[in-house]
Design a binder for these strands. Structure first.
Lengths: 128, 128
DNA sequence: GCCTGTATTGACAATCATTATCAATAGCGC
DNA sequence: GCGCTATTGATAATGATTGTCAATACAGGC
């Protein structure tokens, strides 16, 4: 079997993602790492993020401008409330909504599979 | 003022979008139109779709693979239940959810602005 | 119906995020 | 420490989308 290896690059990406306050693009993360003196490659950042997303250690969503944004998160199912100004993200657990989603799907003869729910707004700090 | 003109290209796009059962990409739509004998250009399809989206005559969402998908729809606010197999989309109006979204936002000190809610599943026809 | 000014088109180049390529490097088990 | 091979990083390639610009075709006035 192909054994997985631990590299400082993967740790760096994981760390940098943890530091970020909200959702970040792979490009941004790469830039931040480079500015901190790291010589990590862009492709590697993409690979590390894809890994993290697959291991449920990161959430990803598509920005309206077409980029994929990432954020560190716990493994439990949840959604986000995101500030459109500064990008801060708050995790939201919404069992009621899960139930609603499943019910609606069944109502239309669909086998419920998945859903995308992201709330956008302006946080208290940016509201002034 | 720059007056808007009616062209057969815009009508063609609008029509083709109306014919589609679910969400379609600009590229797909362009291909369909070409296959029907139209000589419409790809850039024009993009422009027409952007117009329709702005006039609230079409909804758009980002597929996981990064494309932008479009669908004809009414102007009233609503969400979608989409089959991941065949792409059929059902419009869902969910006043309860709107209320929930606003409430959650306020709860966290956010000024509610917007939200993305898309449900995915497998429709009855594709379920077998 | 015909003319004219300009919004719109379409072919193609340019851009931007992301993925593939592949030789060089560096973990990990021995 | 050695060797095997997963991983890296520079760069090329891809694919969707947007910009460019000369040619075209609506719309309104005659």
């Amino acid at each position: 079997m192909t054994t997985k290896r631990n590299t400082w690059q993967k740790d760096a990406v994981k760390h940098a993602l943890g530091e970020a306050t909200g959702f970040v693009s792979a490009q941004d993360l790469h830039l931040v790492l480079r500015n901190h003196g790291s010589s990590i490659g862009l492709a590697t950042v993409y690979r590390a993020l894809a890994d993290l997303a697959q291991q449920q250690e990161a959430d990803s969503l598509q920005s309206t401008s077409g980029e994929t944004l990432f954020r560190a998160c716990g493994a439990s199912h949840h959604h986000h409330l995101i500030c459109t100004e500064c990008g801060v993200a708050v995790e939201i657990s919404a069992t009621e909504i899960e139930a609603w989603a499943n019910q609606v799907a069944k109502q239309h003869g669909f086998k419920p599979a998945n859903h995308t729910i992201e709330l956008f707004g302006i946080c208290a700090k940016c509201a002034d």
